[in-house]
Design a protein around this nucleic acid. Structure first.
Lengths: 277, 277
DNA sequence: AAATTTCGTTCCAAATAATGGAACTAGAGA
DNA sequence: TCTCTAGTTCCATTATTTGGAACGAAATTT
């Protein structure tokens, strides 16, 4: 009832989608998606009251909002009244994935890169200051191939993420870095903006990024940036493997291959988009 | 590289009750999700005007709605102004999938069933009159393992779908059948409610369902129903393979294995849910 | 090159849907 | 039985969405 949003509108210099969670000017949808987020980020199914405590809204309002979300299939509720993400999301995502032309164009190149190196290849896109993995190609794949696709990881401590960040212009980069919270996933994780920036400067010079156990202990990778040019979208490819097998020399040796794959993907994208523009 | 099972998915992406597309009482969210549906069902990216012609709304209104959807990441727009599904959906779906306890409980059983039969095993849940595939285990898996997961297929001509339908009570079954549109995917597809009902009666007696090239030529399967009991949810497991390899005798021989797997999954689910209820 | 049509975007009074307080029901415990 | 907590429904008030109209920019035509 109070005029909550007095001041926020005008000054909103949101050129970027740095998802600050506060600046969302999306009215009703924003409120509803915030609820979906709460459910998505929780460890398990949530009861009505759990959600109530996270979203300071009156019970009546929350109840209607959740009902609408359930009705639309974005959430599901079991007979114990516990809410979880709805299966419609899986269905929509599967369409989104199947029809993603960037992914489709990249796929053969990922596979080729996988064959050249024998290690796992990832394709991820930058969204805000996170990387979302779009595809993954493993060699003698273990069972859970599906696992990584759709996952989000912080851009500042992953190979794909840093590669993508390095392709931003300085202004945009500064904006996204400002939105970061540095967290020490491992002993090698960058702890502040200065270290990250230094790394990114190197990456720009070299043309590729390393991740030496910055996100996960025992996991290293080389990655190269892709300017997808489609919607100003930035992405990256990487070759990833366990540190005991993937030595620094191997990473160095693979770097040109990764860069070549990234370049091929860019070229193919441009060709597919046609001589337009 | 080949998208093996590229869906011919239903016209009707929304399940739940008799989805008259008009009766959605979900206010603003309903209107917005209808737009998402339009984009999801289109063959490719859509221009503003394409969507405008499908959704009879004023240009100004549509523009704001699409902006909100883009802002929230449910849709994306490239610099040519073409809309497609947003990558946030992939991220949400990946969480939804990873945390789905039903899927997690079923997984070892699917794997076991795959080893016993050597053919592909599917897990799907019933949503409205469609089946959405939750998991898939292939033997020497080819590349596109991901493909089927999240896909929707009509319940009336798939093994998993018919098995799940057979576990409904008569009233509910009648309701869902009434909502069906029969389409002849192959020469063996049921063409009307009577044939389908007769099949379902047999399935109830036997305890398992066959699909002999009803949805896709050259593809057969045996499936058993799972009463997930979680939210009144119904599901099914199936073993699927090419007709030249999967003979009628084999299907018969596998039937008890499939039923056993379904039963094990049910038991595990009940145990995990605890002695509650 | 000017004129016209199409496409996309912005604005604001009017219409509509969301809000939030309160009243109500159902279960669980004491 | 009574009380407490969890969840659901109701309805006047308020905020958000709506839709027409007007605007700017491209593309197409004259």
């Amino acid at each position: 009832m109070p005029a909550i949003n007095e001041g926020r509108m005008g000054l909103n210099s949101d050129g970027e989608k740095g998802d600050t969670r506060r600046g969302r000017e999306t009215g009703t949808l924003g409120k509803l998606m915030a609820l979906v987020d709460h459910v998505a980020l929780a460890d398990g199914p949530m009861r009505f009251t759990d959600i109530l405590s996270l979203s300071d809204q009156p019970r009546g309002t929350l109840h209607r909002q959740l009902s609408h979300l359930v009705e639309e299939g974005l959430l599901e509720v079991d007979r114990d009244g516990r809410y979880r993400l709805g299966i419609r999301l899986l269905n929509l995502a599967s369409r989104s994935w199947a029809r993603n032309e960037f992914r489709a164009v990249a796929e053969p190149h990922l596979r080729h890169l996988q064959e050249l190196t024998g290690e796992t290849v990832h394709l991820g896109v930058l969204r805000g200051s996170e990387v979302i993995y779009l595809d993954k190609v493993e060699g003698r794949q273990s069972v859970r191939m599906y696992s990584q696709i759709g996952n989000a990881s912080p851009a500042y401590c992953t190979g794909v993420g840093k590669a993508a960040l390095s392709a931003l212009d300085d202004l945009d980069l500064a904006g996204r870095i400002a939105a970061l919270e540095f967290r020490a996933y491992t002993a090698h994780t960058h702890r502040n903006a200065a270290r990250l920036l230094a790394d990114i400067v190197e990456i720009r010079v070299r043309g590729y990024a390393f991740d030496r156990e910055e996100h996960e202990s025992g996991i290293c990778c080389v990655a190269a940036p892709i300017r997808a040019d489609d919607g100003g979208m930035l992405a990256g490819v990487s070759v990833t493997g366990p540190a005991y097998r993937v030595t620094s020399q191997k990473l160095q040796q693979w770097a040109p291959l990764v860069v070549a794959a990234a370049d091929s993907i860019m070229t193919d994208m441009r060709n597919r988009l046609g001589p337009k523009r």
